[in-house]
Design a protein around this nucleic acid. Sequence first.
DNA 1: CATCACGCTGTTTTT
DNA 2: CAGCGTGATG
Length: 738
Amino acid sequence: MSNLINYEEALNPSQYEAVTSLDGPVLVIAGAGSGKTRTLVYRVARLFDEGVPPENILLLTFTRKAAGEMLERAAGLADDRCRHVSGGTFHSLAHQVLRSKAELVGYDRTFTILDRQDMEEIIQSVVQDAQIEKKAIRFPKRATLATILSKAVNLEVPIEALMREEFVQFLEYIPQIGKIALAYREYKKTNQLMDYDDLLISFRQLLSDNEAVRAELGERYRYIMVDEYQDTNGIQADIVRWLSSSRGNIMVVGDDSQSIYSFRGANYRNMFEFPRLFPGAKIIKLEQNYRSTQPILALTNAIMDQAVEKFTKCLFTKRQGGQKPQVIDVKTDPEQALFISGRIRELLNQGLSLKDMAVLFRAAHHSFELEMELARQNIPFVKFGGFKFMESAHIKDVLAHLRIIVNRNDNLSWGRVLRLIQKIGPRKSQAIIDWMRKEGRMPWQIHEWTGAGKNDEALKSLSDLMKGLSKENITPREAVDLVNRYYDPMLKENFDNFPKRQKDLEQIASMAGRYKKLRSFLDDMVLEPPTSNADVTMDPGDNYLTLSTVHSSKGLEWPVVFIIWVMEGCFPSAKSYSSQADLEEERRLLYVASTRAKDSLTLCYPGQEELPMWQLAETGYRNGLSSFIKALPGEVMEFASPRSAFKRTGYPFQVQRETVNGRVTASPFVFSKNAVPRNFDESMQGKSSGLRPGDRVRHPAFGRGVVSKFIDGTKVEVLFKDVGRKLLHLEHTTLEKM
DNA sequence: CATCACGCTGTTTTT
DNA sequence: CAGCGTGATG
């Protein structure tokens, strides 16, 4: 085999050491932009060069996208066969193994995987069935219950201990929640269901209880690499230990400064436990940064300098020069949207491309106002994070029909499917499900049910659908098409914006076309769903701006990065940020966001918009950058107000609004084909702003105004006194009725 | 029994 | 605003 790669030339000394340390345990502490991915890619290539068959290499990554991209690069570097390296997330590996060995942990191989929504639905039904005494009104919502149960599992602590730590407001319900947890576990067991946590727990149990399985996997995965190790939790760390127990060739790579998943039990201390658990581990630090200019690194280093608990070092770079990062105190959301979109236009005029820019933020809704402004200005963008395509109602509806075929006892899906039918609600659907189970009927016999208020025609056509779907050798594509045809009338009945949703369903059909087996299609839709609308609607050549939550931005980089930073000072209750640990995580989050930037970094601080108006009124306007931004030394960044920033660039935002749109007449709901901001169709559908012409309103940026025209339930035109012109606006989050 | 209007509450990130 | 519970209506 020809060895064409000159490793020493391609890598710096630390990287080279990591790439060539093939045997035994290795811990790589890799700062942001230090060529971590490059190192892993070259290590795969190196192993390959040394004659290790790709199937014997396992690459565990934290996000599903990362693995594929890495293997792609390794293939380009060494050999196409690198694509055969086993790679994926902990969950996907667990799933893959359990599909063939589930009976060893007391499950059937046909188990169904639950996503978060499914989990919450089951919890809700459990709460109802168990006649839990809710006493006061403040019983936790199903989402909170799910969080409590899941976190207790992931942190491996009893529910009571977790609640004393983090959910003090619900302490009085400890007995009830314990009961719910038990019933939930019971329900999953009897219905052959596994949630995300069960996948990990069962996989670990399989490994710990089963010498033969351990041996088999140990033989199969002789070299194991784990990326983003700082984001693993205790269970995942155990899995790593068991997997590598026979050969001991394990490399973990991580950066404690980038640990931002504590909410799901991640513990960056895992990294520093590693040498203890794997005696003789070699420790390698990658500190040279190849991504950002020195002024940007000065900022990121300064952020981490403040951290109370830190283990890694200072990043350095040879990329001198470049501008200082800017901190813009934008005061309000609308002002911020105008500032960022204006800056983007300016950069476009300078010859940059939209692909070179990204806007990052902590929570999906922090970009809403910006998304509307981008849509008005016809700037195409794609958003990563937040809203999940797969979780929209119409998609779950269609998939539910298919899940029944794969698992006839999937009561959750049965319920969803039946409730779609007119005159069938919770009670009747449950009655039908009970009857089916008791009588042992097949899905296509559903029309034989004879209960009160029976809808003959609807049940017959459902039964026909089930008959069609049960056909031997039906392809996933055919199955989706069949369901789509059946579902179409309901889609039109239930959703005003059905044309868009029809397109979504066509996308689902074409995605199904890439699978041979219905079950693997459905599993992937839960475990590896598309990350954003880009994955389903964009052409690879399209040029668009990236919007992303910080969490979804890991491992990516852009020449120009804007950060929307809504700070803890904005929360009046601020319970969540009261603890040192939470503040530390916020710091690491800002660090991750900042280190995505290569050349230009702009931090925007929208002061007050985080608060609903009624809360603003109670608490008053809270301005000021959060404590840890304030504490950064002045020499690492430049402060500016949006007004002065615009003045310097000759782009005052008032004029822009006038010249670009004159009177803003474009509806915020008319989006370019690529830009489909999340939730607008969902949240606006059938709702009304309640505003009528003549109503007085207040807008945070534009002051007081009067509604001049009613457009529809969600859109009104407003005449603002101070601004002196009309503006189209919507929703109570920005318009306060006076 | 299904559906609808109304009122209340309120952190967020993902496999 | 959304999601949820409640009480009224069909």
